[in-house]
Design a protein around this nucleic acid. Structure first.
Lengths: 134, 134
DNA sequence: CAGCATCCTTCCTGATACTG
DNA sequence: CAGTATCAGGAAGGATGCTG
């Protein structure tokens, strides 16, 4: 993914050595990877189904992320030698081993996102009130 | 952080709405944030202690990430009005609420990083063997 | 259908020098 | 001590057009 001799990559290695967290995040930290994995938890999907279900992703990025997930052995790519072509993506056992972890992450996010939104709203309210006065 | 009108930011919002996972990752997905949080799980630390304990991080980045963590209410910044100045960072209750999740993520990473390294090694061995033959 | 190639923009990161 | 300011480089992400 990264040039191995860039200081970027070197620091990344130190981090991975540092603790497992960084390693895990290097796998699922991509912008769209959680969405992809999340959808595949419901079962295998075709390329086009993935594309349509993830609003806003570009083809280029989708393919890139899928290839990375494939390289990391989280996702399996199955090509059917047909015309028209058909390609399906499904989680590998390693991918499935993430299920409870993804659930944990999602739960935390869902729970605390509410708080964050409430905080944001009250903040904007305060700003609005100040603007009213000023 | 991002310009709100960029398509980048819009897609980010959709993602956050998509599932809690993306929200959580937007908080801890930064390159150095896991390291920072991880260290603060051992107790509060001064700026310089953090800097020294995280090898390779630049001051600028450390400050930026700390500010983001502060804005997200994961970390509290305590300034002591002394000379020389002293600033300590500690986890907020919200930060502490991440503990088991971070542990989960770290455990997964530690466990499966071994596999990945082994895979990588056997791959390189194969390549080397092929090079020997060829 | 499933994707690759190309070009472009934005963002992130790091190094260096300076300050209250 | 605990930062800030500025600049540069590289990586990630996006838009579009084309192909087996």
């Amino acid at each position: 993914m990264r040039k191995e001799n860039s200081s970027n990559a070197i620091n990344g290695k130190q981090l991975r050595g540092d603790c497992g967290t960084a390693y895990t995040l290097s796998l699922i930290g991509g912008r769209w990877k959680p969405s992809i994995l999340w959808r595949l938890l419901d079962g295998k999907l075709r390329y086009n189904e993935l594309k349509k279900s993830i609003t806003g992703i570009s083809e280029r990025v989708l393919v890139l992320q899928l290839r990375e997930l494939e390289n990391d052995h989280l996702v399996k790519r199955i090509v059917y030698p047909e015309v028209p072509p058909r390609v399906e993506y499904e989680l590998t056992p390693l991918g499935w081993s993430m299920e409870s972890m993804l659930q944990h992450i999602s739960d935390w996010g869902t729970m605390h996102r509410e708080d964050a939104i409430a905080r944001q709203a009250s903040k904007e309210k305060t700003v609005a009130a100040m603007a009213d006065k000023g």
